[in-house]
């Protein structure tokens, strides 16, 4: 009887895990099989020409470039803000001190705030500053969105820096600031994974950019122009009644998925390498 119950539960667990993996496979397969037929070079090398949304010539280079510009700027801003925070709570303050705990808690909560709220907040800030929907607006919102992700993941690797190393630097007469520099060098691979994670999250998010960055058919040439982004390109093309345009939405989805897959595998590769060389 006990054995039977165990067998049944084990079978259920296997089934649940299998279902989850099958769903993942199903999603990937569906996106690939739907997206592949209309994927061509024009998609990634051309901006929409006249009548693009009626099924005519063109591609989504505007969205690809828009997304890349947006995420590059956001990641730079966000790393400048989150690296100091992570270093501060780990090395200036004691990692397990009460103050660190409170700061970490606050960032954990920020991590849970949905992207639509960051979008609405970004929108509010833009109106306050008198900005239209623009690349800059998008950058503000996305930087806020990915900042907690970065703090969290840098914080995690920072915890693995051996205490002895830090104490050794201090005992050799280094200042606290110099010690932090040593620690920062120790966690460089961790920072890389943090960046990759944030890029993945930031590039795929639609709700923030929908409210802040707007959409346009050309590649933005200044921060104050609106910028198209990949998730929105997918969303808008999908809502078109024209079949060609819908098919392009699927291939745009495939492009975004490929980007995410590459990011995901690179992250895994780096973190595996890192844990291999850990002291």
């Amino acid at each position: 009887m006990r054995k039977l119950e165990e067998q049944i539960m084990k079978a259920l667990m296997l089934l649940a895990s299998a279902i989850i993996m099958l769903i993942l496979g199903f999603i990937l397969w569906k996106i690939i099989s739907k997206g592949l037929p209309s994927l061509n070079w024009d998609m990634v090398t051309k901006t929409p020409s006249g009548g693009f949304y009626l099924g005519k010539e063109g591609g989504i280079l505007n969205a690809i470039m828009g997304s890349l510009m947006l995420i590059t700027c956001s990641v730079v801003i966000s790393i400048l803000l989150s690296l100091p925070v992570a270093l501060y709570i780990n090395f200036i303050l004691h990692r397990k001190s009460r103050a660190s705990g409170i700061i970490r808690f606050a960032f954990d909560i920020m991590f849970g705030i949905p992207s639509i709220v960051y979008g609405a907040f970004g929108f509010m800030v833009m109106m306050y500053l008198g900005l239209q929907a623009s690349l800059l607006g998008g950058i503000i919102a996305v930087s806020l969105l990915i900042m907690p992700i970065m703090v969290r993941s840098i914080d995690e690797v920072a915890g693995q820096v051996p205490r002895e190393l830090l104490e050794a630097t201090l005992s050799l007469g280094a200042t606290r600031y110099e010690m932090v520099k040593i620690a920062a060098r120790q966690i460089t691979p961790g920072i890389t994974t943090a960046i990759l994670l944030s890029v993945g999250r930031g590039i795929g998010d639609a709700a923030t950019v929908m409210l802040t960055a707007g959409f346009t058919d050309s590649i933005p040439t200044s921060l104050l122009q609106p910028a198209a982004t990949l998730p929105l390109a997918i969303f808008f093309q999908l809502s078109s009644p024209v079949e060609e345009v819908q098919n392009r939405a699927y291939s745009s989805a495939l492009i975004l998925t490929i980007i995410i897959l590459i990011l995901s595998f690179t992250t895994r590769y780096i973190s595996r390498k890192m844990s291999g060389s850990k002291i």
């Binding site: 996106i31 997918i234 989805a253 995410i260």
Partner: peptide, 11 residues
């Protein structure tokens, strides 16, 4: 967990 929401929407 890495797949963007919009892809889930398309699916």
């Amino acid at each position: 967990s890495g797949i963007p929401p919009v892809i889930y929407g398309v699916w």
